[in-house]
Design a protein around this nucleic acid. Structure first.
Lengths: 225, 225
DNA sequence: TTTAAAATATGATATTTGTCATGTTTTAAT
DNA sequence: ATTAAAACATGACAAATATCATATTTTAAA
């Protein structure tokens, strides 16, 4: 089993603020898991007894609305921590986490990581800063949902995925999503999402290679009204 | 000038996790301000050099969308801290804070409160827990914005204001908002907000006493489809 | 007190988006 | 390779919501 203190993934998240001693302790109690595409990592209402460090793959954080539709709130990728909020607040999970492709994660038990939250203010402050960033992004999503059209929101989703998660060598978005997932991100009906993407394709803003989407005109996509 | 260590307001926010010594130090450097209704406390893009502890009154946190409409993201009331996110992330403000009635606040300079964030893990963890709560609420708003009708969102806004901020002796909501502010909270056009409120009144779900709104049927309001 | 401005209200209409139906293509299992 | 299921696509229509126009009422200023 890998050792946390030698793992480069931690450089991308708050675990980088742990001391070498703390990392060695965490390393001794963590477990590594592989999660298959489509598998639910945790569900709304679950009691999480730890936090996940994503070593590879990508998952969605979503919530089921009363109308039966899933709304994706955030995408969590390699290098991110998963489940911090439940850890810190000691509440049941508010969101569901579902793997969008095969994942490799390390699970760190709650009682161990809590020790560090209580004793290492640098670590706690780092977690706090990440959560502040998440909150800012969530606030911005609220404004977009309330004030922008489906077309604008879809353009923004494409640009964000491009900028945050990058592209494959052939230029297609590295994150591969179904039309239904796009709809869940944008907050619209699946048919509407399909229509908007088709329209973008007609207008030459994007192209598709199989299921993969390639952004052809980032500037125009940013300017979509 | 009042002393923080004797101020009961701090029981409602993270400042309660400061030690007596820390409180005395904060007390010595804080300033008390009164803010008039309608006044902007800080604007999007402002560099905040401290955090506000709200002793009295209420304000809205909002963001101007590209279509020129304001979206309210959160209401901040007596007992809350204002501006923590900018403090922690060391970024410019993402939101505008505007007083909805006359307010009294204490301003604590950044460099002083940062000392405590770096040295008192109990305090940092408390701030973290509050931010985790804010993030959960923001996630829930995203889901509502994306998946619920204007009518449902308005019902929810009324119920939330009732439950979170309470009522006056005559039963009216203690938070007095204009129809435009209701629209900004719900994320809809002012006319639509007015129409929905008129409809609720017709259906006997609410009544109005001047500009004040009284919830007449909380149960039905919760069940609005 | 009078008066202008702002807030509230409501109708008519346009636009956006969702829903339902149906067909096509892709994927995965046998 | 065949076939069933899932994903993708598109048209037709319905429902929700925004926009524009125009009153009415309330508020605040002179």
């Amino acid at each position: 089993m890998g050792k946390c203190e030698q793992c480069i993934i931690r450089q991308f998240n708050s675990l980088k603020s742990l001391t070498k001693e703390e990392l060695i302790r965490i390393s001794g109690c963590k477990t590594t898991q592989t999660i298959k595409k489509g598998e639910v990592i945790f569900d709304e209402g679950d009691k999480l007894n730890g936090v996940y460090c994503v070593k590879d793959g990508i998952c969605k954080l979503s919530k089921l609305s009363e109308n039966g539709k899933d709304q994706i709130v955030k995408l969590v990728v390699k290098g991110d921590l998963l489940g911090q909020r439940s850890l810190v607040s000691d509440e049941r999970a508010n969101l569901q986490a579902t793997a969008l492709n095969d994942m490799e994660v390390c699970f760190i038990p709650k009682e161990e990581i809590i020790k560090d939250l209580k004793n290492n203010p640098t670590f706690t402050l780092d977690v706090l800063q990440h959560m502040a960033q998440d909150l800012k992004e969530a606030d911005n999503i609220i404004v977009n949902m309330a004030q922008k059209s489906v077309r604008q929101r879809m353009a923004e989703v494409l640009v964000n995925i491009h900028n945050s998660f990058g592209t494959n060598p052939d230029g297609t978005l590295s994150v591969l999503l179904s039309r239904e997932d796009f709809a869940s991100l944008v907050g619209t009906a699946t048919e509407s999402a399909i229509r908007v993407l088709s329209q973008f394709k007609k207008e030459g803003l994007i192209s598709t290679v199989g299921k993969h989407i390639k952004i052809e005109n980032l500037g125009e996509l940013n300017r979509v009204e």
